[in-house]
Every structure is written in C-alpha cells, then in structure tokens.
C-alpha cells in the first residue's frame, strides 16, 4: 500500500473517531459488567415547600387580594444503593428456564434462518446471472426488502399470517398460534428480509469471476453440476464465509420481528435473548440481571466474531 509521508496529521484524522468509539462502546460495556455484579436500589426522598411565585422580571406575583402567590417546589434527593452481590446474577442465568428457552430459540432461529438465506441467495444469484427478461428491473425489485423497517415488516407479516382469512389463510397453517409454527414464521420473515442481501452479494461475486476462467472451466467439466462444484463454488467460498458470519452476527441480535409479530409467544416460544434481556432490564427494571444476560449474549457473539475476524483479516490482506 502506497502512503503519504507520515506526519502527526494522521492522528488528527484518526483520533476523533477512535476516541468516540472507545467512549461510546467500551465505557458502557464496563459499566454493564459493573452493574451485573450489583443490586441497585433507588429511592427518592422528597419534600415539598411553598415558594413565592415570580414573574419574568423577578418580582413576586400577587393574587386578587394582593397577597403574594406561592407555588409548590418539590425537593428531590435521589438515593441509590449499590450492593455487591458477586456472581449471583450469573448463577441465576444458569438456573433460569426463560434463559434456557431464549438461548434455544435464538440458536434454532440462527441455525435455520441463516443457512436458508445463503442457499436461496446462491440459487437466486445463479438464476440472475443468466440472461433474463427485464433483468435489472427484477433485480431492483429484489432489493426492496433489505432496507424495509424491520418493525414495520413484523406488523405487516401479522396481517399476512392472519389465520382467519389472510392471504395465506388457505394453507390452514397455525402460523402464529402454535409455538413451533410461530418460531418458523419468525424465521420466514427473516428469510424474506435477508435473502435479497445474500443474493445481491453473491451476484456481485459471480460477476467478479473472470470470463476466461469460466470458458476454460467449461471445456474441462462435462456437467453443470461439475462446473458449479469444481469452479464456481470454490470461487465463491470467501464470499460465502463473509456473508455467513455477517448474517450470524446480525441474526443473533433478533429483536424487532418477534416484538412486532409474536410478542415472544405463544408462551416463550419466540422470545429471543435480546428480547428477554430488554424486558428484564427495561420492563422489570432488574438492571443487574439484564446486564448479566446481555453479557452472556456478548460472549456467544465474541466466539463467532473471533472466527469472523480471522477470515475477514485474510480478505483485507
């Protein structure tokens, strides 16, 4: 890589962003870890006093009888007590059936949705790599789901999965009222939204394969399958790995779709890790436990990410 002469200017360019990211990610994560080993209790001590009402210029306001009017001022003193409870929250994690179920739900979701998106993406990319009627128009239509607001998508699919006369009602499938089907429905929505992304990336990668190479390969391999297995697939492998890991990291965050589509149910059948942690922290206000939960998720992501970056480093070489 050719570079400019090194001057101190490079730090002026880099540091604002670096410091920003450090402040806004490392600090909350450390804070979160601290929270997870504490029990936080907040109380307010409140007293009320009557203070004279003042007008804009600072003079007391008088009532009809000429007496100064008063208003109530609330004095607050917030008292937070932090008790160190060690790893109690992490022990709770290990015994909490809701956590076990959330891990199971998230895993099934990731393991079914992501490979399906990859396979469908590759198939569609191969299809669109042919000469087609209105090819670029159709390709543009396929793009639309990628940026559709996920929460809106969740609500929309509720109307599509509506079992009493919705557009898929003729299938007679309990899309949202049966626990297994509900999870499948959530997966289906994610497949709808993210297959186009996989498709687009694979199409780009296919079009990056040099024509000469393809011509040469066609001479050698007899069948279409041979061509795919021996030439195309190996050429796509680096892209597949990247898309796979990107999708894994994203899919683990699953939140918006169950929020809108199923509310995490029936029961806890579609309650993902993110959903559970969110509810625990911001609906039950059990802050420490929610922090412990999200750390558990973070660790799972880290394991995947480690894999991810080794590969990504290679592609950056």
């Amino acid at each position: 890589m050719k570079t400019h002469r090194n001057t101190k200017a490079r730090f002026v360019f880099l540091l604002p962003a670096a410091v920003w990211v450090l402040t806004f990610t490392i600090f909350p994560l450390v804070y979160s870890l601290y929270l997870s080993v504490h029990k936080v209790e907040t109380k307010m001590n409140v007293s009320r006093e009557k203070v004279p009402m003042l007008d804009a210029s600072g003079n007391p306001v008088l009532d009809a009888k000429g007496n100064p009017r008063t208003k109530i001022k609330i004095n607050r003193e917030k008292i937070s007590t932090w008790t160190n409870i060690g790893f109690t929250n992490f022990k709770r994690l290990a015994e909490d059936p809701q956590v076990h179920s959330a891990i199971k739900v998230t895993s099934i979701f990731v393991l079914v949705a992501v490979p399906s998106q990859l396979v469908l993406g590759i198939l569609l990319a191969l299809l669109f790599n042919q000469r087609l009627w209105a090819r670029s128009f159709l390709r543009a239509v396929m793009l639309l789901p990628i940026f559709a607001t996920p929460l809106a998508v969740g609500y929309l699919f509720f109307t599509i999965f509506y079992e009493e006369g919705g557009p898929l009602g003729f299938l007679g499938v309990p899309f949202l009222s049966h626990p297994d089907w509900a999870l499948f429905s959530v997966i289906l929505v994610d497949i709808w939204q993210w297959t186009p992304f996989c498709f687009l990336v694979f199409l780009a990668a296919l079009q990056g394969i040099p024509n000469e190479l393809m011509e040469a390969a066609k001479m050698e391999s007899k069948s279409k399958w041979g061509l795919f297995a021996n030439i195309i697939f190996p050429m796509l492998t680096p892209t597949i790995v990247i898309v796979l890991l990107l999708r894994l990291a994203e899919a683990i965050k699953l939140f918006d779709i169950p929020f809108a589509l199923t509310g995490g149910g029936p029961g806890v059948a579609t309650q993902s890790m993110s959903f559970l942690a969110f509810r625990t922290g911001l609906r039950y206000f059990d802050l420490g436990y929610a922090s412990a939960m999200s750390y558990c998720l973070l660790i799972i992501v880290m394991i995947i990410v480690t894999l991810f970056f080794r590969k990504l480093r290679q592609s950056y070489a």
Partner: peptide, 20 residues
C-alpha cells in the same frame, strides 16, 4: 414488582393455551 409477577403468569398462561 406487580408487572413482573403478572408477566410471568402471562407467559405461562400463553404456553398453556397453545397446548405446550
């Protein structure tokens, strides 16, 4: 904690109604 008590009840009821 009323909300948390109810939320737990709610989830278990839902699991019953879906036959789990």
């Amino acid at each position: 904690g009323s909300f948390e008590y109810w939320d737990i009840l709610d989830k278990n009821l839902s699991a019953t109604m879906s036959g789990e």
